[in-house]
């Protein structure tokens, strides 16, 4: 009997110490969304349960290893205990109830994290290897950064151009895969102003590690100001082919792989490329001219530059006008 009492006390102590210790370490990142609240609440419940169950098993094992260790010279056998049916039933039924309760709480917190605000701002997210692009249909802006007004729900409609990607901000907690051929949705209420990063969370190819975008959560005023700035920029950019082209390559994720300043990357740099000799993977060479640029956009696998055989450039569909604008911009890079 005394064994049970000692074990019970030790289990209680270890449980408390473990919970306290884990909370002190601070396991989760900061909370920056309304959705993080029910998720972290559920997590805390789980930490408590994990700590208790850990103690419940570890303490009797360690206790047994100490107290019931065979002493030197003792050749007797252990106690012939075959089992205990009431105990078996108890430790089947109680965990069953615990498990069902946790599942219920899990469903409840999931519901809390999926509350819909019909006034949510819509943003369309396009993912591709290896960049995110954000379109604000209400304002007709395309951006490579996700600006969000604090304390307002945003409803992301997400699709992929190629393979499965995933949208995840640790501080927001919620994660959602982005699948080609369908639109998956993501609702979040950012609750803290600040600078965050969304990183692709589904292996999408060689540069998966580097697929990310900036998220800026700002006040309503700052957000409106940003929209204004972007609209103004777009208006100016719309005026010349070169600036239109620049906007296009940024918004379509091209600059995620092609550098504009000569730095090496997973795709050929555009800097000082026009008019130069290009060595292709099949050993031939050509001059980088308008035809080459156009073909590389519409049919990237037709001519692959030497050294870049193993990375697949996605296919893009632009109008002839857009292609002319892009080429005009690329020519300015010298």
């Amino acid at each position: 009997m005394k064994h049970f009492i000692i074990v019970a006390i030790l289990v209680a102590i270890l449980t408390v110490l473990t919970i306290f210790g884990l909370n002190e370490i601070g396991l989760m990142p900061e909370q920056a969304s309304m959705q993080a609240l029910p998720i972290d609440w559920m997590w805390d419940m789980q930490v408590n349960a994990m700590s208790f169950l850990f103690a419940l098993i570890i303490v009797p094992i360690v206790y047994s290893l100490v107290v019931f260790r065979r002493k030197k010279g003792d050749t007797s056998e252990g106690e012939h205990i075959e089992g205990n049916t009431p105990l078996e039933i108890t430790w089947t039924i109680l965990p069953l109830f615990a498990v069902l309760s946790f599942a219920y709480l899990g469903a409840f917190t999931l519901g809390e994290s999926r509350l819909v605000d019909p006034q949510a701002m819509e943003v369309n997210v396009t993912a591709q290897q290896f960049a995110f692009t954000f379109e604000y249909p209400e304002f007709r802006i395309i951006s490579e950064e996700l600006y969000l007004p604090v304390d307002k729900q945003v409803h992301l409609n997400m699709t992929s151009k190629d393979v499965i990607h995933s949208f995840w901000v640790p501080e927001f907690r919620v994660k959602q895969d982005i699948v080609p051929g369908r639109v998956t949705e993501y609702r979040i209420n950012p609750s803290e102003e600040g600078f965050f990063k969304v990183r692709c969370a589904e292996l999408c190819g060689a540069s998966h590690s580097y697929m990310l975008a900036n998220i800026k959560v700002v006040s309503k005023d700052e957000f409106d100001a940003w929209i204004g700035e972007r609209l103004a920029e777009a208006a100016i950019a719309a005026q010349t082919p070169e600036s239109r082209g620049e906007a296009l390559v940024v918004q379509n994720g091209c600059t995620a792989c092609h550098s504009i300043d000569g730095s090496p990357g997973i795709a050929p740099t555009w800097f000082a490329l026009y008019g130069e000799q290009v060595e292709l993977a099949d050993g031939t060479t050509l001059t980088a001219d308008d035809e080459y640029y156009k073909e590389s956009i519409l049919d990237p696998q037709a001519k692959i530059a030497a050294g870049f055989e193993t990375v697949l450039m996605p296919q893009f569909q632009f109008t002839d006008e857009e292609i002319a604008d892009i080429i005009a911009y690329l020519k300015t890079l010298r």
Binding site: M28, P38, I39, M42, W43, Q46, A49, M50, L53, F54, F102, A103, L105, G106, A107, T109, L110, E112, S113, S166, W168, P170, R173, V174, K175, Q176, A201, E202
Partner: peptide
């Protein structure tokens, strides 16, 4: 075994998946 249930629970798994 103890680190399984947070993955089993959908709400927490949204954070834990693919990490």
């Amino acid at each position: 075994g103890l680190t399984g249930p947070p993955n089993a629970t959908v709400s927490t798994d949204l954070h834990l998946h693919d990490t």
